[in-house]
Design a protein around this nucleic acid. Sequence first.
DNA 1: CATATTTCCCAAATCGTTTTGGAGTATTAT
DNA 2: ATAATACTCCAAAACGATTTGGGAAATATG
Lengths: 337, 337
Amino acid sequence: MPVTIKDVAKRLKLSVTTVSRALDGYDDVAAKTRERVIRVASEMGYAPSRAARQLRRQKTEAIGYIMPTIKPRFADPFFSEFIAGIGDEAASRNFDLVVSLAPPGEEAERAVYQRWVQGRRVDGIVLSRMRVNDWRVRYLSDSKFPFVAFGRTQLPIDFPHVGVDGESGMRELVAHLIERGHRRIAFVSAPADLTLQVDRMSGYRSGLAAGGIPVDESLIVEGNLTRDGGHHAAQQLLSLAKSPTAIIGANDLTAIGVMRAAHERGLIIGRDLAVAGFDGIESAEHTHPPLTTLNQPVYDIGRQLIHMLITVIEEGTLAERQIMLKPELLIRASTGG
Amino acid sequence: MPVTIKDVAKRLKLSVTTVSRALDGYDDVAAKTRERVIRVASEMGYAPSRAARQLRRQKTEAIGYIMPTIKPRFADPFFSEFIAGIGDEAASRNFDLVVSLAPPGEEAERAVYQRWVQGRRVDGIVLSRMRVNDWRVRYLSDSKFPFVAFGRTQLPIDFPHVGVDGESGMRELVAHLIERGHRRIAFVSAPADLTLQVDRMSGYRSGLAAGGIPVDESLIVEGNLTRDGGHHAAQQLLSLAKSPTAIIGANDLTAIGVMRAAHERGLIIGRDLAVAGFDGIESAEHTHPPLTTLNQPVYDIGRQLIHMLITVIEEGTLAERQIMLKPELLIRASTGG
DNA sequence: CATATTTCCCAAATCGTTTTGGAGTATTAT
DNA sequence: ATAATACTCCAAAACGATTTGGGAAATATG
């Protein structure tokens, strides 16, 4: 049984009040007493009970993140980057990070959010992989629960978030490919309910338009942001009668799957086929050849989001509520660079 | 302000006791009453305060994991796999997963562990990346705090863990390379204080011995489990007068860095140089050429560990305390397969 | 009919903190 | 010397649940 504040008080022949106040740095306890308290408390290995403190203070000093992941596993390095970012920043502010996993859109997901919000499990929540019509935003906003998000929605709700301009990024990428001489540029998309899909797709389309190339719908096939999805889609694209000379993946994982399918057909990437992705995950540097991609600083965005969230939690308000970043086009050998 | 059990009781004109017991499924409340309670409680959106419940029950229904990661970021897909495993299993048992990050071995790390243990922040802790002389094991064991680990230590302390036999795995891998005709087989190691390093290194040595090949110490260079570490080490190895024909990385990330260095020198992997890793991360399937590796089922090990941990927490004891798995040698094109 | 046994409910104590509202002393000002 | 002003400290009341130990009413038993 761990040592409580009462044990410390008894040992010091002081009241728990004084011990508590000494430890919390109030100035109504004599310097000498405070010293004694601090020394003895640490000698006894005292640390306040989180539960008791939370109950009394009505806050948890914890922030929550629910990974929108499909069972039975996920493996997108995007998430490790992101968790590293939010985890580092949270830790440095002495907040705990509580994570759970739930399949997006289903009942289970709703249950976790509700448990955390109603049960006051965390002080705030971080959202990612936003959907165009995202019930999480409606729910948290209705509940007046502090939250921030990586990405936007199409709801008429104003909330703090950091976004990456997928549209302009894609436009730039398409321009790059056109400039390299490509005319048949395919796109392996993400699930249609994701905001990132809407943005990136529209960038793809407007990029083609800007280059005077009509959109060929047969060159757009749906993936699911995984390697296998990209692999699958590419097989389909590459067996087309008029197959594409360039394929863009909605994210890097997709692009890596595309590269694999191309390899299997004996195509030399960068020469026979251009491939590009979106995200800038580290392993995209190490594919063969290295993958052209649109880099987004996921780690830093994570930190930034936590910073914003803690401000909202502590101040109740936030100056700069919406931040829009431009992804950086990294041209590498996979597009013949 | 969220709805408390008192609000529910008042609305129902019942005592909080009865509401609490009805919700908790005690049989000393009339079926009809229970129904009413459940209905109204859910109508009002009541969920018990975690903090209050924790305080009273003296347990948190949360388990902790502290990623041993070097600032300012980490990117080993190993961790996403692992978190997915422990997260999924924890979620399915209705436990929360609390994560933090701390640089291994430093004061900050100790501080987090102490806060969690003394502050009764979590009911149990999962350890990974074990060190041969791991203070965490001593500390948790001394504190009689429930924990499980992925990997062993060399301390004379008995604790529940799942291990992967890195030694026999490496031996098998070395045998495979020797059989392919390699005689100059290099090893890019991990930091020396890690158990996995001791195991894998000793498998490397005994594998060579079994093949009648004397160990050439110049072919052993230290890495740090990252791509850059592998890249660096390989540059050194490949500029040796008598450079190796095969390089084994202590993990897949290292091996991927090695491949990159080889590419840069114009070597064709699988023909001019064999490369192999350890871990079986997903991106090892997608390198060019695909990477030979020793696969360990990280996701399943994570689930298994949580299962063990929750058993320890709830029953106080555990039948099968030590589990040793054999890694599976996946021979792919990077070793000329 | 009197007594035992269920059945169903509740008041109060408890978990370990923080916070509120003083209450004694000692010091300073008048 | 007295009043005013610090300094220090503390008892008791929260916070929101769960659990203990009954108690009253309804039902069963002899």
